[in-house]
Structure formats: C-alpha cells, structure tokens
C-alpha cells in the first residue's frame, strides 16, 4: 500500500474555461471603469480648461495625486479606507471606484488637450455664425479636438485595461489572479502565464495598431 499522493494536478481543458471566465471579469471591470472614468474625465478636462485659476488651484492638484501615487497603493489605501468611513465595498467595488478615478485623472488631461487643440479663431467663427456655446462645443470642438486626442485616449484606455490586473491584490479574481491560482495548483507557470499574456496581447495589440493607423490617416 505505497501510493504517492500528488498535491498537484495537471492543466486540463476545464481550466481554460476558468481562465476565460476570469478574462471576462477583467473585461467587465475595465469596461466599466473606462466608460465612467472617460465621462468624468471629460467633465474634469472641461473644468480645467474653463475654470482657469480656480481649477488650477483646486482640481488640478487633486487629479495630480492620482497620477503620482502608484495604482497599487491607491487600491490598498482605498480598500482599507472605505470601512473606516463606513462604506461596505467588496474588492470589485473598490477596484471600480479607484480605477474610475484613476482613468478620469488621466483622461482629464487628454480632454483638456483636445479642447486646446481647437484654435481660438475657429471657435470665434463658430460663435459668430450664431452657434451657442454648447453648439460650438458639440459641433466644432468635439469633432476636431476629439480627433486630435483620440489616439491618446486609446492609450489611456488600454493602459487602464492592463492596470486592471492590479485589482488582484484586493482579491478580485481577474485574469492574472486566476492564472496565479492555476499556477499554484498545476505548477506549470510558463504555459499558464503564456495563455494569460496572450489574452492581454490579443486585446491590446490590434486596438493600439488600429489607433495608430487612424492617427496616421487623420494626420494627412
């Protein structure tokens, strides 16, 4: 009766399903925070542009903090801060909150750059044609400025998608956390990490290529 007990089991097709689910969670949390963060960021960018002195003194330093502190520290800090003020947030909730603010801090600068990219004379022309302020924003600044900074925005969005891997420190099982769990069980780090990396790459590479192509076409 001498049977060796193995604590590890090999990589099975079932585990691919497990990784796939985790990949969907990565997509979900990044899509959620990128979309909310972009809307917030555009609002902040507009405030930075219009608010001039008031915004430079108040909003800009606050947004600056989120760009100057590592995301991982922000996540841990907020996750441990939420219970102190009586918020009951799970890892997913905290992750979304911080990723959203982080995105909006990055997008704010992009958005401001976009508004600044539209020359003054163009906007004056729009206003003197009888457009209201918001019509000018919607029909002149958005299409022209938006084009100018669209590649930068894609860069930010892809960055956030990649950075969403950090939510794993809070215990949210997204792709990288799932692959770590599998590595612990199967002891096949190379294979599993390659699969996880391939997923990120397959998502990020075509989008960044496409954005670069658009940028080149629009530059002409």
């Amino acid at each position: 009766m001498q049977e060796t007990i193995s604590f590890f089991s090999g990589f099975t097709p079932n585990d691919l399903w497990f990784l796939g689910e985790a990949a969907l969670r990565t997509l979900w949390i990044s899509a959620l925070s990128i979309s909310i963060g972009t809307v917030l960021g555009c609002a902040f960018g507009w405030m930075l542009y219009e608010g001039k002195l008031a915004a430079t003194l108040t909003l800009a330093p606050v947004l600056d903090v989120f760009r100057s502190v590592p995301l991982i520290i922000q996540l841990v800090l907020f996750y441990n801060f939420a219970p102190i003020v009586g918020l009951d947030l799970d890892p997913f909730g905290s992750g979304v909150v911080i990723l959203t603010i982080y995105t909006s801090a990055l997008v704010a600068n992009v958005a401001r750059g976009g508004i600044e990219a539209v020359e003054r004379p163009m906007r004056r022309a729009a206003r003197s044609l009888g457009m209201s302020y918001w019509q000018d924003m919607r029909y002149v600044v958005l299409p022209i400025g938006g084009r100018a900074v669209f590649p930068a925005w894609v860069g930010v969005a892809l960055g956030v998608m990649k950075d969403s891997a950090l939510v794993s420190v809070l215990g949210y099982v997204e792709l990288l956390k799932a692959s770590q769990i599998l590595i612990t069980r199967t002891q096949e780090p190379f294979l599993i990490l390659t699969i996880a990396g391939a997923f990120y790459f397959a998502l990020s590479f075509p989008i960044s290529r496409y954005a670069a192509k658009l940028e080149k076409r629009w530059a002409q």
């Binding site: 950090l166 794993s168 780090p189 990396g197 990120y200 990020s204």
Partner: peptide, 19 residues
C-alpha cells in the same frame, strides 16, 4: 507595450522558473 507590467514581472518571477 501590450501586456500588463505585472504580467511581465510574474513572467520573470515564475515563468522563468519553468526553465
């Protein structure tokens, strides 16, 4: 440029362990 930095660290940390 197209994979998370954390993934790259894990790769150098655990991935190379396979070799």
């Amino acid at each position: 440029r197209n994979t998370p930095a954390l993934f790259q660290l894990f790769f150098f940390g655990f991935g190379l362990g396979a070799f």
